[in-house]
Design a protein around this nucleic acid. Sequence first.
DNA 1: TCAGCTTTTGTTATCTTATATCGTAACGGC
DNA 2: GCCGTTACGATATAAGATAACAAAAGCTGA
Lengths: 163, 163
Amino acid sequence: MSVSKTIPVAWQRTHDHGQCIAGAIDAAARICESRGIRLTPLRRRVLELVWENHKPVGAYGLLDELKREHSSAAPPTIYRALDFLMEQGFVHRIQSLNAYVGCNDPGHSHKGIFLICNDCGDALEIEDKGVANTIDRFASRLGFLLTSQSVEAAGLCPGCQEA
Amino acid sequence: MSVSKTIPVAWQRTHDHGQCIAGAIDAAARICESRGIRLTPLRRRVLELVWENHKPVGAYGLLDELKREHSSAAPPTIYRALDFLMEQGFVHRIQSLNAYVGCNDPGHSHKGIFLICNDCGDALEIEDKGVANTIDRFASRLGFLLTSQSVEAAGLCPGCQEA
DNA sequence: TCAGCTTTTGTTATCTTATATCGTAACGGC
DNA sequence: GCCGTTACGATATAAGATAACAAAAGCTGA
């Protein structure tokens, strides 16, 4: 894969999928192993499908793909798998899109930021402590006990601005 | 309204609704006036309904309330009104709840943070430049052109922790 | 090994949220 | 008063998510 000079590398990371999928699945498998839980064929396949789309995908999009090879699949099939994958931190849900995307860095804190392109639909996950810490400070100042947070920003990615 | 000593005042702001509704409607009316757009009776009523619930409300919840007095209301009625109110910055959408809430401070930047209580369902809007600026910096560093952002944190508010 | 438990998946139905589409009515400038 | 624009009415349907219960698969220990 060649890297354009006009587009920051960090943005392109999302597009660099070829080998990433296998890596992500392997990582998930190892994590499951170490946690003593089961990455069943179904769950593994859904995780693959999430990664094979290089963009956030809706649950029913995944379901359509899964049905091609697994005709018994129904909405609960997908949602159960996604719930599992999210609990384990392998997949993120993009709230503003009702869509799901593979986590670049499972095992980590999951307090990332998503930059979502309104044109091409791609989403870049940024790991950052700064925003999360600011939110933490606000919460504790107000006596609020945090359990999760979601930071999403939408706009136009470098590639789509050119067009 | 009395202010508990164990709960930070800022959190309680959300609950102080009595006079706020009229104020919010008036503010919206003035802003519409100055922008040369129309706060029709329907739109005004939907804005009131949003405020009358002191928590984020779903579109179909609003629709049920609207139907009582306006039997012709249907989903598009509510969604059109909400779209208008959001465009004008009078109402926020809470992505993680698919729900809508009045904006404490229309006319302002709309780069707030929401702290959402998983127990009582209340949402506190915090105006903060820090998080927004951090996101802006990330975006411009990556060449991303921002148009909107959504920062939501969930957990337990002070009141619900006591229980 | 197989009985009994836990976890996962199958199956059907239903619920919630949101849009598409097309027709009609109200408003506002000229 | 005409006419373009904007707003609303009405129906249908898409899209997203969950409830509830049955069946199968995997694990565990006698």
